[in-house]
Amino acid sequence: MSADEADALEAFERLGLTSYEAKVFIGLHRIGSGTARDVARVVDVPRSQVYGVAESLGERGLLEVQQSNPIRYRPVSVDEAREILRDRFEAEQERAFEYVEDVVEEPTVEEELEDIWTVRGSGRVEDRIVDLVANAEDRVVFVVRLPELLTEEIGAALEERAASGVDAFAVSSTVPVRDRLEQLADVAVFSPPTHRRDDERSGRIVIADDDAILLSVVDDDGSETAIWSAGSLFASVLIQLIEAGEETPFGSA
């Protein structure tokens, strides 16, 4: 068996045919038409199995049966077979995703109770931060240490919230970062408490209102991982723990 034929067989299997069905279908196209004996001579399928496989292919509409003695088989054209398999694939795809859509529209109790989410990769963490900032209604606090983690998108989101009347605060222990933060319109900028300035692992922190929070850490290889929660008891309690004992002008009332 050539590499091309092996690839074709695997492709047919991914389209829903069994290995024997794919072999018989290809074999029939090779000889044009024939009996079970003829097919067994050109493909690696036992003659006794050809009958059942041919019947299955017939039910799929991929071959025609001549009621002679012995029975002869003829495959449909390549274009017709392609159309049949395409329609079948699309129908199965539609059936599968209709079910997924139903699941999304009717979440289970376990999904509704999920409080804490994990996000990996700086790009995805940034997307979540922008989303949390954009949805803040009363106040938003953004804490960042590394210059590369203060992006234009986050800065724009902070400015937009500040312009809409939300109390926007930014905190950094790094002077260049504070300088950039101070360029954001209507965003109040602060240094962290002294005992927090030696931190070398934190990435970004976001507190939105009193019930949404994101915390990220940066690994030695520069990768960023965050946990976040919104509208949950976990988020509210964690915010209170972070702000407890801190004399910050942006603490919750």
Rank of each mutant, 00 (worst) to 15 (best):
H29C: 03
I154G: 00
A11L: 15
G123H: 01
A54R: 03
Y51N: 05
D186A: 00
F234R: 05
A163R: 10
F12R: 05
L62P: 05
R95V: 13
S229Y: 10
A212T: 12
V104S: 14
I129Q: 00
D102R: 13
G231Q: 12
A235F: 03
D79W: 01
E247S: 15
I205Y: 14
R197A: 08
E137A: 07
S216Q: 10
E126A: 03
V175T: 06
D115G: 06
A253Y: 14
V119L: 10
L146Y: 14
E182C: 08
L146D: 12
L241Q: 09
R30C: 10
Q49F: 07
S122E: 02
V175H: 11
P176I: 06
G58T: 08
E247W: 07
E59C: 04
D219I: 08
A253S: 15
A81D: 05
E55V: 11
P192R: 07
R124H: 06
A170T: 00
V237W: 14
G222V: 01
A54F: 06
P147H: 02
R204T: 12
E247R: 13
D167H: 00
A8Y: 07
G222I: 00
R86M: 04
A170R: 02
S223G: 14
S33H: 15
G165T: 02
R88T: 12
L184I: 07
V218S: 02
E64W: 06
R60I: 13
A170W: 00
A22H: 01
G231Y: 14
V39K: 02
D87R: 14
P75G: 02
A235R: 04
D198H: 13
P193W: 11
W117L: 11
A170E: 03
P176Q: 02
V78M: 06
R197G: 10
E111D: 13
R30T: 12
I205W: 11
W117K: 08
E148N: 08
E247D: 15
E246M: 13
V39M: 06
G203H: 01
E246Y: 11
S229N: 09
R86N: 12
V144F: 01
I129R: 09
L62I: 04
R74E: 09
E200R: 15
A36D: 10
S172I: 04
S19D: 13
T248E: 13
L17C: 07
D7C: 06
I129N: 01
E105H: 09
V206Y: 03
G58D: 13
V218P: 03
G61T: 02
V78W: 10
G251E: 09
V43F: 04
E94L: 14
A156R: 10
F89A: 15
S172M: 03
R120K: 15
V141L: 09
A188H: 08
V53N: 01
P147A: 08
E246K: 12
